[in-house]
Design a protein around this nucleic acid. Structure first.
Lengths: 216, 216
DNA sequence: GCCCTAGCTGATCATTTGACCAATTAAACA
DNA sequence: TGTTTAATTGGTCAAATGATCAGCTAGGGC
């Protein structure tokens, strides 16, 4: 910031921190596109540096990939989601809509979904840890909230919530893994899915979403 | 048939057809496990043959992978599904349950899901073609059926059906890609998902689908 | 303007990997 | 049983790839 922008562009030598950041940025983009089997040479070429320089900052390709995973997952899990989900001052439906709007906004990115899927195929432990977090910190509390709202009716199970979750995630998979056309705005689809879900457990919806038969 | 089983095991030289089959079988298993970047040498070792022999049957690794794709996709798409889906002599719910029981039974396999996902990440054209078939031959007719059944109520869109489909597929993804625990029998989960879906469009369900009583 | 630290590069090594071929040998056939 | 055919193999090549290191040089400090 103190340097002029041209200075930033022209200088070939960067401070270690900045260079490392730049490498990880390029690596995230590169490995998301070509897969985790991409080569260090191609990555270096794309980053505009020599392949040898990568090994100045990372001891091995595996360590570089660890940095990529960390970067991709970092800050994708907002710490305020658990609080949002359990805030009974707001209607449950509104909480779920807000949560999935933010959640899909956070992870429906080309880089995140592709690297996450590639890591899953590669058997990376990070995947399971991440999904354990999703289950324990997000879906489990959400299940409690839904059960409370439906306390006089049928009770959902965790598998039902995974089903809702998966249907939403599949939108991102279709878009970024399979490269299929998807709606620009995913929220209407998500909103209808949430309404069907809540309706399935006889949880009252706002007047606008009432194509269902009136219940006594 | 005419040869005893021990003869089959002992003989080192196989007829080209049998050898080719055996190679493709081993390749499906191998690439599903280690990813499409697996090496021909490791594959040969696992198949109990020399690496050179692979090139007697396939001109290149890419051609071998094509055979793997063909094998994996072959006969996974039952030709009777479109007829099943549009058979209005049977209740819609029953058709959907039957279809998804057979469909999940066909594709919820370690090999199929992992190779399909790896092919998607690799940008293989086969993926999009397969999913185009799913959309055109299965989901589009199914959408018509649901719209007909809900003709006096709110009408689903194709995206809603993709949502249902994705929620179901996600079960297989959790199991085989992420290696997370999932129910042994997926049908109860699928059945509830279908019931929520149909209920969301005010399509009558059988009496048995009445809400269960709260925690027994 | 000069120095000297350290960010960076070119060259190189050891393996790995896809692909090929001449030589070998199992097995069908007479 | 002997002959023939082709399925199979060991050996090898060229290119690709992860990793290393001595040396060059940009650029901040004096």
């Amino acid at each position: 910031m103190s340097d002029g922008p041209d200075t930033m562009v022209r200088r070939r030598r960067l401070a270690p921190e900045a260079r490392r950041e730049q490498i990880v940025d390029a690596a995230v983009c590169y490995f998301a596109e070509v897969g985790l089997a991409g080569t260090t040479r191609d990555l270096a070429k794309r980053a505009g540096i020599t392949q040898a320089l990568l090994y100045q900052y990372f001891r091995s390709k595996a360590e570089l990939l660890d940095a990529v995973f960390a970067r991709v997952y970092l800050d994708r899990m907002s710490p305020h989601w658990p609080g949002l989900i359990t805030d009974r001052n707001r209607p449950l439906r509104e909480r779920m809509l807000t949560f999935y709007a933010e959640y899909s906004g956070a992870i429906f990115s080309y880089e995140w979904l592709r690297i996450f899927m590639a890591a899953g195929l590669a058997g990376e432990a990070l995947n399971r840890r991440y999904l354990d977090h999703v289950r324990d910190l997000l879906l489990a509390p959400l299940l409690e909230e839904i059960r409370f709202a439906a306390r006089h009716n049928a009770q959902p199970e965790m598998e039902d919530l995974w089903n809702l979750h998966g249907g939403i995630i599949y939108l991102g998979i279709r878009r970024h893994i399979y490269h299929l056309p998807t709606p620009d705005d995913v929220m209407p689809v998500i909103e209808r899915a949430i309404d069907r879900f809540l309706g399935g457990f006889s949880i009252d919806l706002p007047a606008k979403a009432a194509p269902r038969s009136p219940s006594p």
